[in-house]
Design a protein around this nucleic acid. Structure first.
Lengths: 317, 317
DNA sequence: AGTTCGCATGAGCATATGCCCATTGTCGGA
DNA sequence: TCCGACAATGGGCATATGCTCATGCGAACT
């Protein structure tokens, strides 16, 4: 067969093949016959029409943007998991969407027969997520808390994610019977030497799946608002360049855990950068963008559940 | 699993599945895992994203328009074959493109091992097509002419497609040693009773593939320009509503062979409407649009090789 | 002109896909 | 509250697809 214009002719055929395959819905056998080539060649032409961008796909659906953002986040930060849900235009700042997404993620993993250890942080996002989980019976799983469940005023913490989920699932669960931040470093160290606390920490380190909220350190910082740290702590931390927290541990803009200040007194299980296990951050909102981005950079989390707007802000900055 | 917003949720998932499949290039197994459904369901979702037009395909290539036109022509006129080649913007009115297309169609069929009878009309398009065919050895095929090869002046016809192709292919070939239009009806009938002529006609009727040009009947009508019919014939035919010819047989705007006039004297093999065999018209150009359209309507041809502009004109009128 | 390199080709196989069917779960009505 | 109808689900099979490999052809270089 003569081959004048071999290149353009090949691309023409690729275009034809792509058209017949994707638009007309032909099988590659039919295309092979119509173009008078072998099926293998038809396959190559179809493949070529994609790789040469002769044919393009367009998804006419709000989800498309989310998928795109999710993919880019996964690529940029080497995430093991990333959900981006559409930002609900009706409700500007509530947790609709990511709570459901985090909830169904959790539910899915809970329904697995594989015995799994779940480590849980705290915060509004996680609490909302757990509120979307229906009662189910999964006694073979283990739930363990990363953070103390004693409020600054001595009561049980308001966002007791662990107990709530334990009730729903009848899974064994291990709360951490401590204040989140101890009054001093030495008291913290004393707490940590307690047997039940050590048990929880060793479990948490083996957790297959970790879910944490991500806190910001502006004036609405959850750690401060909920009374875990003082105004002075907050100011000190910000002077040290801290931008956010995960399970009470405060980190700077590169996601590095800062030394000193409240980090010397926090009783939570410390996040392990670059964990081989799945560590998912659940967070959304303009105020959390910097914190989430830092946590991603420092690989304090290797998974993310957020919404479209937040995802776009993280990628855009 | 709870099903609030079952519909929109299902479409969302379909969109996700479509995105993952077509844009991210995931397999349906991967999609099934990511969306936490069975593979069968993932398949349904991908399928749904196409049928609901959530995902659309766009072919960024000049060929796309041709494919589209070709498909529409095939659908509208129930064609067995249709090639639409890009209109070469550089060369407004020559036969580049369709000649190559017709040539390679013919070449392809000639290369087949299946012994095939090819019936050939005449005209510039077919001649140009044959000029694109390289020498090859296919003695098992048979070529037969639909039209006489004697010019009005008694010489061999200028566009002797058959002999030329016979030389190139070493196939057995049967020319029709007749003038295209006899001086009178009775002379025509005499010619047709000759043994060699009857042989040719019986072969032509069994032809597996027929290729014909399509002539227009305006002032540049090939039949007239080449001297097969007189000016008066032409005027008469047009008064009778004739718009074109195939192998010398003249038809009206609905593709019905007109009665009387030159059709009483033409010696060619008459076209058979709605033939079960493949009968391909090869033609292009604004002046031929009406003629081609009529031939398609009357099913004098059930295949077409033309160019983009002509195809668009046929469909647009 | 001879030789070598590179690329396209088609056979064949492992995998992915599409679809049928039995089953399950859900919803509306008695 | 129970029943029947319907739709969605996942198993399983026939088919289509993607990919590897050995081969052949043409182009470029010597």
């Amino acid at each position: 067969m003569p081959s004048p214009d071999a290149d353009s002719s090949r691309l023409d055929d690729a275009a034809r093949a792509g058209w017949l395959y994707f638009i007309a819905g032909n099988t590659q056998d039919e295309i092979a016959r119509k173009l008078n080539v072998s099926r293998a060649t038809a396959q190559r032409l179809v493949s070529l029409s994609r790789s040469e961008r002769l044919i393009t796909f367009r998804l006419e659906h709000p989800i498309a943007a989310c998928m795109e953002l999710s993919q880019r986040l996964q690529d940029r930060y080497a995430l093991k998991h990333c959900d981006v849900v559409p930002t609900d235009p009706a409700s500007a700042s509530n947790l609709v969407g990511i709570a459901e997404a985090a909830g169904s993620f959790l539910e899915q993993r809970l329904r697995s027969d594989e015995p799994t250890i779940f480590a849980l942080g705290t915060g509004r996002s996680l609490r909302a997520a757990v509120d979307h989980i229906p009662p189910m019976n999964c006694p073979s799983h283990t739930l363990v808390s990363l953070v103390g469940n004693i409020s600054p005023d001595g009561s049980a913490s308001f966002f007791d994610v662990l107990t709530r989920l334990g009730d729903l699932t009848r899974a064994k669960h291990y709360p951490m019977p401590l204040p989140v931040v101890a009054p001093s470093r030495s008291e913290r160290d004393q707490f940590l030497s307690l047997a039940p606390v050590r048990k929880v920490r060793s479990l948490a380190e083996k957790a297959d799946v970790t879910l944490v909220g991500v806190g910001q350190l502006d004036d609405t910082a959850p750690l401060f608002v909920d009374g875990f740290i003082t105004r002075k702590d907050l100011d000190d931390l910000r002077k040290m360049g801290a931008v956010g927290d995960v399970a009470g541990w405060v980190f700077d803009e590169n996601g590095r855990i800062v030394e000193g200040s409240t980090n010397e007194r926090v009783t939570s299980v410390p996040p392990q950068p670059d964990s081989p296990r799945l560590v998912i951050g659940v967070a959304m909102g303009a105020s959390k963008v910097a914190a989430v981005e830092a946590a991603l950079k420092g690989r304090l989390i290797n998974g993310l559940i957020t919404n479209e707007k937040t995802a776009a802000a993280i990628l855009g900055s």
